[in-house]
Design a binder for these strands. Structure first.
Lengths: 201, 201
DNA sequence: TTACTTTTGCTAACAGTGTTAACTAAATGT
DNA sequence: ACATTTAGTTAACACTGTTAGCAAAAGTAA
């Protein structure tokens, strides 16, 4: 009876061992160095056992992509929803986004396919959706608090996200080590976005 | 005497055969399908001959990256420098950028490492520099024509580029087929950039 | 305890990858 | 005609993701 429970525990332990060792390889030598055989070496098993826990190598990459979106949406969830005015909150979201990217560079690359073949599935995953929702509702709130009621919220979300991603992607193009504090250019762009969101058509 | 000239011509012909066949593979089956042996098959030679023309597989990828920047800067060079006012020109550059990305999706991915390990060398290549210069001088012109003289031009360039790239990168995340006409959100962002460039500090 | 069944994890293999060393055959130079 | 350079080949190395087949261990039933 309890042997099956122990077995289940062992399976989970091996799974998390695969995850931690995979991540170790990625952070130490880059995602290109990640191979099934290297993972197998690290967990002290032969290569095929990995396929009992992950369908393919891409599934392991996808795991980290989802993990990244979970971390990002979690960090966004920590931003207080009340007390401060709505545009202040949107600002916080933008800087949280940047800070996340600078802290979890490797995750960010995987999430947005920067130098990596992106996992197809992630685009409509619930993990990404959650992150998207935080940004959407913050934009919605700013619009509600302003006199602007004709702006297409989804288009505004896309603009917001594109702007943030652009700064991160360009920064990551030349260096893995980007400053955790939002750069002057990013602040400028964010302020511009908020301004037109509140005042423009 | 003329045999060496003929030889030289044959070498160049084989080189361009490698390039065209490589590109055929990339456009037909994606860059992941590109392999030395497949190129060798297509040019009807054995694999090692390719190394007489390109140092490595990455060098072939890099060739297309440079080609992309050459095309982009060429398209930018076609935008008239006079007759229209300076902000109109900057607008044109932005839309030319977008149009290039939508027309040469495969090139763009290679140039900016979208889903592809980017070639290290490209970052400071003269091909990229030329493109950068077109954008820089257009920004400079707008600033000269305005009352704004304290703006850091290099930071403004980075903001401009980051914004454009953000829209392209997000669009390419979900689909290879992006509209050649600039989207409403891009136009909005470009107008916002030009506005703050002319008026803001 | 014995006999049977399931699970676990292994080795070996397939079909590829980039790249290089060694060799042959053809073209060129003297 | 002979020596030398060059062109292009095959074979190999050290990898890659993934799968089939097998042996040993563990769990179950009589």
């Amino acid at each position: 009876m309890s042997t099956t429970a122990r077995r289940e525990r062992e399976i989970q332990e091996l799974r998390s061992k695969i995850i931690t060792q995979s991540w170790k390889i990625i952070t130490e030598d880059g995602w290109q160095a990640l191979s099934i055989r290297k993972i197998a070496d690290a967990i002290e098993y032969s290569a095929p056992v990995i396929y009992k826990h992950f369908e393919s190598k891409e599934a392991i990459i996808e795991y980290f992509s989802k993990e990244g979106f979970n971390i990002l949406s979690h960090e966004m969830s920590l931003i207080p929803t009340d007390k401060i005015d709505s545009s202040e909150r949107l600002r916080d979201i933008a800087y949280t986004y940047w800070r996340f990217a600078s802290t979890y560079v490797q995750h960010y690359r995987i999430m947005f396919g920067l130098g990596i073949p992106p996992c197809e599935a992630i685009n409509s995953s619930k993990e990404m959706q959650r992150t998207s929702n935080y940004m959407y509702s913050a934009i919605e709130q700013v619009l509600n608090d302003s006199t602007n009621d004709i702006a297409d919220k989804h288009l505004k979300l896309k603009t917001f996200w594109s702007t943030l991603h652009g700064f991160v992607a360009i920064a990551l193009l030349s260096d893995d080590n980007i400053p955790s504090a939002p750069t002057a250019t990013l602040i400028d762009a964010v302020e511009g976005f908020i301004f037109t969101l509140k005042n423009n058509k």
